[in-house]
Design a protein around this nucleic acid. Sequence first.
RNA 1: GUGGCUAUGGUGAAGAGGUUAUCACAGCGGGUUGUGGUCCCGUUAUCGAGGGUUCGAUUCCCUCUAGCCACCCCA
Length: 468
Amino acid sequence: MPNKKGPFKKPAPKPAVTESASTPAPATTKKSAQPLQVVRGMRDLLPMDQAYWKQTNAMAENLAAAYGYERIDTPIVEDTSLFVRGVGRATDIVEKELYSWETAGGESLSLRPEGTASVVRSYIQHGMLNLPQPVRLWYTGPMFRHDRPQSGRFRQFYQAGYEVIGDADPVIDAQLIILGWNFLKGLGIETTVRINSLGTPECRTNYKNALVAYFRSKKAKLSEEDKKRLLKNPLRLLDSKDPVILELKAEAPQIVDWLDEESKTHFMRVLEFLDEVGVPYQLDPYLVRGLDYYTKTVFEWYANSDDQELSQSALGGGGRYDGLVESLGGRAATPAAGMSLGLDRIVSRLKEKNPPPQDHRMPHVDVFLAQLGEMGRKRSLALYEEFREAGIPVGEAFSKANIKAQMEIANKRGAKWAIVIGQKEVLDGTVQIRDMDAGSQEIVDVKKAVHEIKKKLANGVDTPAATV
RNA sequence: GUGGCUAUGGUGAAGAGGUUAUCACAGCGGGUUGUGGUCCCGUUAUCGAGGGUUCGAUUCCCUCUAGCCACCCCA
């Protein structure tokens, strides 16, 4: 629609149509409509999975602190040209996966498909080159790619990324790899890094030429698809699964042989650093990555798994991008490197490793208030505040009248004590404290209820914390 | 974007061209009206949406939507 300003724009009042009067039509009006559901490739992160996300996000934050990264948040929406110039026009990410639209003002905007371009833009825009170098920044948030959904592949997915801008030393590359490796290891996911070097743009061009020349000589054997790729992005031929290519690949020139001395040394040193720390890696001469900005080191983490199916997709990746700052308008050539981790995939691994309990657990409380009658309910409502202020985890089911139902909930929530307040207790100014394990009850002055529970909590054996 | 497979209550499953669509778990309500974790009973689906074939479709066909798998590619 040409005039549409955005998804939240209130629709202009239509000339009175009879259908829905003043109230918005409830979903139940017509049963014939397609049920409402999430947009393709999008998903809800449900309560039952939040513990895994929390754990993952905590890891991201802790490692950021441990390695000296500062948090940065950039907008989800950027000028389309940022990604065209940054990620590369001919990449799949830009060519077919970018969520782009034109605003009423005629700007072309896009949802970020990755984080690095934005961070570099911010680095340039805010003159971070005047900060002590290198600048280490980390971020986390949703990314968007209009891809065909599959398991572990969403159109909105989450990444945590770490960027080091302003330093050319190979130790930076190595430490990024170590960080990611520790990230995954800390969550119980053992990985191996696949690593390669693309060299400088010059090496890459030379190599590309050699590669094109090689495949040209075999052109007769190539499929139409591969011929196209030969023209557009010959490096992509290397990760083709086409058996013909796989066969030809064995004889094809390898990038390592085309690296200049400096790139070669850089690469060797990265590997030496990895050896030093004992991070397992695997040289992969065909690892290319789908973003144009990479130079020299590129890498991806793959889970060590006997299940080959699952080990197909990378859990994260990154590399050096020495030319990006300059190509996005930075004043000087500024070396940089970074990496990002796929949180959705990590969370799904975590969940596989530690399946959630079958029964949906309600949040644990120490004390549960069970009330009877209107007076009891009022007194409980007030007492609830006392417990809350005292910092004692307390639960309630004030909307239930039936005490049996309330006791059931108290039990489900793992309360050690239930406090029963009915009409009788209100009149006496007391409460009954029921020990849920023993089944015994005692009568206590209502004013001493909180104090009494505190005492019990203090000398009672610490209840085994019901985590997750 | 291309091809294939799938779609039954909140979840996981079973089912047959035709009177009340089966089972388990969860949820809610109850078991004579002030007490839990066991037990018993009740209750929750116009079988993804739209259309077609048929006397009749949830079951057959088409389209759409979504998920999964492969390709493409990546996180």
